[in-house]
Nucleic acid binder design. Structure first.
Lengths: 156, 156
DNA sequence: AAGATATCGTTGCCTATGCAACTAAAATGG
DNA sequence: CCATTTTAGTTGCATAGGCAACGATATCTT
């Protein structure tokens, strides 16, 4: 377990960390200014949009949308109240609920995207050259997928 | 205003975004497991640690710690209650308050750092080669500093 | 097949933090 | 030098989201 942390890496971390918060705040602020829902709504809707039949189990949507199950449950309440998704019972397992994207949900996604895209372009992409973008995708792909590895079964 | 968003850049954004949340959650979770304060405490304490005389005005600390002034005000309440900082009035301007790091604050910073560093190493640095780290620092430095530019004076 | 255990989603409760309104203290300007 | 405006920090109120406990259902064990 490398608790080693070279100077360059620490520097990279610090800039990564602070740039993220600033980017995030700037984009959220643009969305709010346009009277659009926040990124957490977008994330959940988009995951459903990508899913087969535009629906996912609650707990899987939670994972995809980077929330806990309880957090997701409440988010789904709001999305459902707004008519953006519908809860559907699973016919074969009485415990599971599906969240299914509605037409209105798709429409909302389409209203959010232009503003979100503009934010990504303005605050992020404008400062990243194409080869750098490829590199970032590669590096963060590795970092992210390390979390997907099978969790060590108790004592690994 | 390039609302243009090339494929590579979008891909980089998505991975950047999701890897950040996972990293952040993992590190926070490690800190909580070690009975240590969260990153927001660390960030504020560390900014004070770097500051001349280990103190900053509230509003400047807010900027540095990536919080709003109101959020910072409450954070400072807790840090003060824990004896990690002290509020000090400014002798020349009755409106300003300084937050000043105490010895106990420094000590807390030192208790947090090993766990934080291990998290950065394990979840982030382990997946980043040295030249990549340099590149990340450069790119995120550019992104971050774009936010420091003089704000456009009303109509720019 | 019945009891024990595990899993899924929801809910109670708590904390963090943002916005807008407020107070006090400067700064400005007439 | 008083009146207005600006600035710094704090506070009321609201929302987001986590943890742990719960109820319902499914799976496993004997």
């Amino acid at each position: 377990m490398s608790s080693e942390l070279p100077r360059q890496h620490l520097e990279a971390w610090r800039k990564y960390y602070s740039s993220f918060w600033r980017l995030f705040a700037a984009i959220e602020s643009d969305l709010a200014a346009a009277n659009l829902p926040s990124l957490s709504w977008y994330d959940a809707l988009y995951e459903l949009y990508l899913a087969p039949e535009k629906r996912l189990r609650m707990s899987q949507l939670a994972r995809s949308a980077l929330l806990t199950r309880s957090g997701l449950s409440r988010l789904v309440d709001k999305l459902e109240k707004g008519g953006l998704i519908a809860r559907r019972a699973c016919p074969t397992d009485g415990r599971v609920q599906y969240a299914e994207l509605t037409g209105k949900g798709v429409e909302t996604l389409r209203r959010i995207w232009p503003v979100y895209r503009a934010g990504i372009a303005k605050y992020f992409a404008a400062h990243v050259r194409e080869p750098e973008a490829r590199q970032l995708a590669a590096v963060f792909g590795r970092i992210s997928s390390a979390f997907d590895e099978v969790p060590p079964t108790a004592v690994s």
